[in-house]
Each structure stands twice: as C-alpha cells, then as structure tokens.
Design a protein around this nucleic acid. Sequence first.
RNA 1: GGUGGGUUGUCCGAGUGGUUAGGUAACGGCCUGCAAAGCCGUGCACACGGGUUCGAAUCCCGUACCCACCUCCA
Length: 465
Amino acid sequence: MSLRLYDTGTRSVRDFQPRKPGEVGVYLCGLTVQGPPHIGHLRGGVAYDMLIRWLRRTGYNVTYVRNVTDIDDKILVRGEEQGRPWWSIAYENERKLSRDYAALNVEPPTYEPRATGHITEIIDLISELVERGHAYATESGNVWFSVSSWADYGELSNRRPEDMLSSPDTGDKRDSRDFGLWKAHKPGEPEDAAWTSPWGRGRPGWHIECSAMARRYLGDGFDIHGGATDLMFPHHENELAQSRGAGLDFTNFWIHGGLLNLSGTKMSKSLGNTLSVASLGEKGFRPADIRYYLTTGHYRSPLEFSEDLLAEAKTGWERLSNFVHRAAESLGAEATIGGGLSPDFVNAMDDDLNTPAAIAAIHDMAREGNTALDSGNDTAATSSAGGVRAMLDQLGLDPLDPHWEDPGDAKLHGAVDALVKLALEQRAEARARKDYAAADRIRDELAHAGITVKDTPRGPVWTVD
RNA sequence: GGUGGGUUGUCCGAGUGGUUAGGUAACGGCCUGCAAAGCCGUGCACACGGGUUCGAAUCCCGUACCCACCUCCA
C-alpha cells in the first residue's frame, strides 16, 4: 500500500502522488507571532513533522516551507500596549517558537520565510489581481479582493457567500465579504509598519503573504498545503481565491489538523487558556512526554488535553522507553540500531498517518521484546528492540536519541553513577546477609534523593526521576 | 441560520459488515526477600429508535446531545 492522505479539497482520502516524481513541495501556515506559542500550536508542528519524516522515509525529496507571519493588526496592538517596537515582539515570539519546536524534536523546515521579507512578492501578486479584475484599490489606498469576481469562492470550506455572516467592519470595501490585500497606513500607526506600494504607503493584509511566499519557494503549483482546521475559513479559502485568481495552480492537497481542546473548548490565545512547554516542564512533564502525548491521537481529530491525560500518556511512553533502555542494557545499545518497521506500522502510517494505530504496533512489538528478554531469547529481543527503536525514531521519539538528553546531564551522570554504585555495593552486601532492613534503608535514602533503584536479573539499575 | 466534525469499555483513543486495536485504570495470577519493571488472565465497549442483512458498533433513515468554524486564532 502506498501513502494515502485526506484532502479537504475533495473531502476524501486520496492516493498521494506528487506533481514531479520524487519531489514534494509542502507549505504549512505557521504562526502569527503575536504571542508566545502554546502546545496547541505545537501540536500542528509535531503533526507536520511526522508527515515530513514519513514523506522522506517514503523516498521523496521534500521541500518544506513553514512561514512566520510577523506583521498584522494584533502585533501592532501588542507593540502599542508594551511600548516597544512591534517587530521586537514578533521576533521574540518567533524565537520562543523555534525553541519549543526544537525541544519537541521537530525538525526545522527547509525554509521559514517571514511576511515582512516578501513585500515585493506580495505587491506583485496584488498587482496581478488588480489587473485581472479580482481586486480593486480605493481612494484611501486600501486594496480589496473582490469576492463576487471569483465564482469558485467558497469551494474549499463549502460555503456560499450569501450564507456567510457579514463582517461588521466593512471599511471602504464594496462588498462586506471582500477581504483586504493591502492596508493603507493610518495616522498613529508606526512608520516602520508601512512600505511603499503602487497604492501608497501601507502593509499587507492577512492571507496574501502565504500565497506570495508559497509561490516564491514552491512555484505556481505545489503538492501539499496545510494548517489547522480553524484556518480553513477564511484564511485558506482566501489564499485559494487569491492564488487561483492570479492564474496559479496552487496546491493539490489540503491537509487540516485538529485542534487541542482544554476541558471541551479549544485552547487559544484569545481565550487565554494556554499552556507552554516550559510551564509543563515545571510540572515534571518532559518534552518527549508531550510529543508522545500529541501522537496518541489522529492528527485530524480533536485531542483532549488535561494534566491527567498527559500523565497517562507519560506512563505509556515510559513503558516503551523502559523496554528500549532495558534492551540496550542487556544487549548493548549497538545491537538495537538499524531495526525495521513492522508491516502494521507501515500500513498505519500510509493510511493518512494513523499514528494511534502506529503506536499500537510499537506496543505490540515491545511486548514481544519484553517477553524475549524475560526468557533470554537474545535473537528475538534484538529484533524487537531494533524495530521498536526504528519505529519510535520515525515518530521522532527514539528514547536513546541524544536529543532527549539534558546537555548538562552527561558529566553529572558519570559522577552520580560512581556515588550510587558505592551505595548499591553496600546494599548488595546487606542483601547478601539477608539484612533487608539495611538494604531497604539504602534504597529509601536514594529514593529520597530522587534516585529510583530497580533490581533486574543482571543486577540493580538506577534512574533519576 | 449556514458549514464541517463527533458520540466506542474506568479514562484516552484507533478501527471495521462476521476474526484481540493499543495504552491507561482496576482486579487476579506468575516472577521478586520486598518493591519496581516485566509477563499472563479478567472486564466481552461501541448515544438512542427503527430499517437493510444469514450477520451491524461498522451501511441506510430518524432522534438526542457535544464541539468547532462562519470575527483574530495551529
């Protein structure tokens, strides 16, 4: 079976075929960096990371573009509120986003263009739309896309313009459903938030930057365009109208991810119910726990978030991680490299990236591996351990990936290891003379210091909580 | 009002016209000095009402409820 993906454009699961054999162009709408990222945003990044990794595994050369929208109304408002340049806020949030993506082992895109760096491309595209009669400039220097000029408007989100609620803020548009391509500079707005254009000084509206940047880096037609489901309308609908209106093919597949819900409602900046990687870290959740949790649901389904659910996911992840560590200890880490993916895993991933089923396949193999380790069947254990590692690695979750190590850990680990071994030697002596009270006291004291000791057939091992 | 998605066992979460999802929690067992980890077993789930079918949680019709989008949002 080959890769099949759900395409919002046709509302169906379709066989994935790139335009050019072996080459895939992917555009993901990244964030508008008006505030720091929360794990709802990161869910999208992780889901796409999974897609990109799977496309590459399948053998495609992937060009992955994920933009940053670094100018819009809200960013300007934030600048005003905080009394500092709007662009410093955008950049600060962009850096936080990059840091969190990196923490979750999300690979960087091929390129990450910013809206403000593509004013030329944006102006060119708007000019073409004006020439073709799909956009018009007004006296005040605004340029609007004319929804009524584009018969297919609404095709992506399956809405008819007449059904839509009209926006209360009509500005100087001819039709309340028209949307802004270029916003004229207004008195009081920062001078450094405006650029020269054929229609006077101003700045781009939301939507147009994605059409312009996708065209610049991926060409007039490309393979996959994505974002979360809340972008489908109006953002993606508008992008589609702009790009097609300008005569571009645009994308073959539309992929929309589900949102992360918090107590039934979505997590969002405007609701203020957000959670960051850092704040979860303070509660003892490591980035790998979060990444595993985010893969336990299908990317298109809404995913419920709570600390209890995250804790439950953490336990599930530790089961796999325990197995890999256990196998590496008994067989040697080298023996667990280079394993293969199970057919169940491959089928699940090919079936619209069914990561919950893929994880089930990993758990199945981990169980077999544990049984093999228990019975001393090293051949079977090696095979299972290699497979589990390879599959987890495919999901960006290999427990032995150095990425998950705390940089400061390595040195400290050596020092602590020496001390703990000393204590464990004394405990072993106590156990040998069946002085279990003394043995347990040593274990309890270590536990008090945050060190958990487990006895295995090959002797005691320790871990830090 | 319009559009889309959903309702699965303690909880989360896949899936499918007839065969064990998986994890998690609980209980029982094995192993262990104890614990942890691990393994085995138990729970026979699919909102409700009809219908189609040899057989439906899976298809069809209806009902109820939930969520999102239609205004900035991954």
